[in-house]
Every structure is written in structure tokens, then in C-alpha cells.
């Protein structure tokens, strides 16, 4: 397994203000690595240090084997990036942007090819300012990979997009990975991280608080699933006796059972053997959101 990003104890201050206190993680070749955390957690600062756009104040960094502090010029030629706060001139045309950015790396594909590949051919003469949010993100994705990088950084690609455009953008990100490019994806959306990322580093209060796969995080930090149904049975102690059940909460006819493992199947079988087969039975597996609430103690915004 080749590591394309290695960060150890990254630290960054703006004047006296510490924006990133202690961030360590590594990214393997070919994965989509998520950096998830609330606004102000230090995600953007972290990836901008990795791209050599800011100079870190402490820690060891290696990106594609280069030091972002001293070899930033060379590094930026080899990576692709989509910055959280950046734009293009409103009157710049789509083809001009792609041509300008793909000329940066002589080894990259011809710009006309990039235009086709990202479905921008019919928008080639449209100006940046006239594109919709989703189209602008499509262009930014195309620009990020226009120089055929091995690694791209994408910072908050879907903030401000409508749900439809978000899905489309997710597909674009998967498409980047299918080209064999490693992706570091910064987001504050749980569903985005859950849907796209192979592994996730959760950053909160300027530190990494957990790193794992989505399943691993859920397993370790939010094991409980939740089964709900309605019943008229007066006594449900037989459910509480089940090994899988951790808690039971009753509100009139409405019952919520929390627990782990094969909770749904066990509860259903037990109810059935007592002559109850609720039609409104529902299960909610723990999600990344629960993980997040558990390890950060709330405050998702």
C-alpha cells in the first residue's frame, strides 16, 4: 500500500490563534479519504497546508513524497485542487478555463479531451458567471483533474447545491476515483462522507478525534440500532429479556427498542411468538450522524 499523504501532528496558527492543533492521518493510493467536521474545525486549513498554499507551523507532512513547505511549487504541479473559497472571472469561458489550467502540466491530456470527458462540450462557450452552481462544480472538477494529477483535494464541493446537483457531483467524485486518482474530500455533510468515502478522519476542535471506515466508526462509536413498532400487548418484558436488547421505551402504543447485533430479527421473532405482527415495524441503523453526536458531543454546525 503506497501512502500518498502523510501528516503527523500538523499544527497551524494564524497569529496567536491556533486553527489546527494536532492533526495526523495518512491517505493510501486510490482511496477517497474524507475529512469530516463542523465548520471552523480546521479542515480547510489542514488541506491548504497539505497543498502548500499555507505554511504549517509544526508537524511533519509528506504529499506525493514531497514536502509541502519547501517543495510547494513542484507539488502544486502534481496535484489537483478545488478550493472552498475560490472563483473564476465571471466572463471567462468554459473552454478558456480548461485550456488555461490544462496547459500547466505538459503530461496532461489535451484540453478538448477534458472538455468532452466532463460533459462540458455543450457549455464550452458559456461564461463562468452564467453557469449554475452544479455546472460550476462540474467545471471545478474538470479543472482539478485537467493536469492529470495523482491526487486531488476537494474542499466542500456540494455546499450550496440543490439535492439533485449534489448527487450528480457525487458521481463526478466517484468518476475521479475510477480514473485511479486518489481523492481527499473535505465536507461537513455526514451523508456525503458516508456515501463517498472509504475512510474518514473526523476533526473536531482542531484535532482528529477518530479515523476509520464508515462501518468501523459506526461499530466503535454508535453501535446501537433502533427498532420501532406499535402494539397493544400490555407486557413487553419478554423483549427486555433478549440478549440483543439494551433498552425499551414505551409511549402509548408506540414502542422503541434499542440494541445491537441482529436486533430487528430477534424482536420480530419474539413478537410473532406472542401473536403480534406489527405492520409498522421499522429499523434505523446507527449512522455516521450518531457517531458524530457521540464523539463530538453534538454541535454539528
Amino acid at each position: 500500500m503506497t501512502l500518498v499523504v502523510e501528516a503527523q501532528h500538523l499544527q497551524k496558527r494564524y497569529g496567536d490563534f491556533v486553527a489546527v492543533e494536532d492533526v495526523s492521518f495518512s491517505v493510501a493510493e486510490g482511496e477517497i479519504f474524507g475529512i469530516l467536521g463542523p465548520n471552523g474545525a480546521g479542515k480547510t486549513t489542514t488541506v491548504e497546508c497539505l497543498q502548500g498554499l499555507r505554511k504549517s507551523d509544526g508537524g511533519e507532512l509528506a504529499v506525493l513524497g514531497l514536502d509541502p513547505r519547501s517543495e510547494s511549487e513542484e507539488l502544486r504541479r502534481q496535484i489537483g485542487s478545488q478550493l472552498q473559497e475560490s472563483a473564476l472571472p465571471d466572463r471567462l469561458k468554459v473552454w478558456e478555463a480548461i485550456k488555461l489550467f490544462s496547459s500547466r502540466n505538459p503530461g496532461g491530456p489535451p484540453w478538448e479531451h477534458v472538455l468532452e470527458q466532463w460533459n462540458l462540450a455543450e457549455k464550452r462557450d458559456a461564461s463562468f458567471g452564467s453557469l449554475s452552481g452544479g455546472q460550476q462544480q462540474r467545471l471545478f472538477v474538470a479543472l482539478a483533474v485537467a493536469n492529470a494529477p495523482k491526487l486531488v483535494f476537494l474542499d466542500e464541493m456540494t455546499t450550496g447545491l440543490d439535492p439533485m446537483s449534489r448527487r450528480v457531483t457525487w458521481d463526478l467524485i466517484r468518476q475521479i476515483r475510477e480514473m485511479g486518482t486518489t481523492v481527499v474530500l473535505v465536507t461537513h455533510f455526514m451523508d456525503e462522507a458516508e456515501n463517498l468515502c472509504d475512510r474518514i478522519a473526523v476533526i473536531d476542535h482542531k484535532r482528529v478525534v477518530a479515523i476509520d471506515t464508515v462501518d468501523g466508526l459506526i461499530e466503535a462509536h454508535a453501535g446501537d440500532a433502533r427498532v420501532t413498532f406499535s402494539t397493544d400487548l400490555p407486557d413487553l418484558s419478554f423483549l427486555e429479556a433478549l440478549e440483543e436488547v439494551a433498552g425499551l421505551d414505551r409511549n402509548g402504543r408506540r414502542v422503541t427498542v434499542t440494541g445491537h447485533g441482529a436486533l430487528l430479527a430477534r424482536v420480530a421473532v419474539a413478537l410473532d411468538s406472542h401473536g403480534e405482527t406489527p405492520v409498522d415495524m421499522d429499523v434505523k441503523r446507527a449512522s455516521l450522524e450518531d457517531v458524530f453526536l457521540n464523539i463530538t458531543g453534538g454541535n454539528v454546525t
Binding site: L53, R76, R77, S81, L83, E85, S86, F101, R104, L143
Partner: peptide, 8 residues
């Protein structure tokens, strides 16, 4: 910043 990130 966008230019800078693309090694301009």
C-alpha cells in the same frame, strides 16, 4: 488563489 493552486 485559484491560479496559485494551479501553479500559476
Amino acid at each position: 488563489k485559484r491560479f496559485h493552486a494551479s501553479s500559476i
